[in-house]
Amino acid sequence: MSTVLQSDSKTAPATPPGHSIKAKQSLGSRVKRLNIPGGLGGWIWLAIIIVPIYYIVITSLKTSEGYFGQNPLALPTAPTLENYQLVLEANFATYFMNSVIVTLGSVIPTVLISFMAAFAIVRGRGRYLKFVNGMFLMGLAIPLQATIIPIYLMIIRLNLYDSLLAIMLPSIAFAIPLTVLILSNFIRDVPNELFESMRLDGCSDWQTMWRLALPLTRPAIVTVAIYNGLHVWNGFLLPLVLTQSPGLRVLPLGLWTFQGEFSVNIPAVLASVVLSTLPILVIYVLGRRQLVSGLTAGFSK
């Protein structure tokens, strides 16, 4: 490789010859940091991300006069929360509670049973566990939305149609493959000596799992919990197909119907968008470090 990379004066003009290697290195790394096209691209993408979000937030604070009269990107002259009030009066508290129930009711069982399975897959051996692992890996490659029709049929037959449980059961099943995968990657990183010493202390596998593996993989557990939570919280197809009553709507579904009813009142529609995202934003702010580092570790291996 070194012959290929030798002396390219065009792309490294800021590295003059004759410097000591150390100086060259620090200078070279500074040159690398001053990546102008990269920086430009980074800021352009930031604008692409931020302008729509800025528009959503400020418009949700505008009165209808402000919406129709002002420049769309100008800050509201008379900021108001009346749109939010309207949204809250449209039963959003119920949708919010439903989303909380469905999300917690899916994520907690998912993480718990996936952790147990991941522990067994990493620590145990034998053909059965290999087979189970292979099956979960295959689950990753299947677009599980394609199974919605049989799920609908099963939920009807189980007399669960139009209930929150109907959303939770398939959500758990869909989340298991990826959760097991990420957790087993992390459990594998636990040094074997620790397991050995637990065994020498006379701990059973069950105790080792809860007292050793669980605390040591807590960052990964937080990661998968947030990641799965995000998916379930934002899920649309399962609630759309498996529930019907307005009282059982989760937020994305509530958002969609609200938009249908209030399509002329854009500030209110956008207020509903902001409100439905707010809880996730709070969790993101609190757990960002964990989520980001966990996700990169889980996917970039």
Binding site: M116, A117, A120, G124, M135, I151, M154, F174, P177, V180
Partner: peptide, 19 residues
């Protein structure tokens, strides 16, 4: 250890594989 996979397996088989 194999028992520990059973809950996850049941969910996956019933609500993902069977469908």
């Amino acid at each position: 250890l194999a028992w520990l996979t059973v809950p996850a397996l049941i969910f996956f088989v019933v609500f993902a594989l069977a469908p």
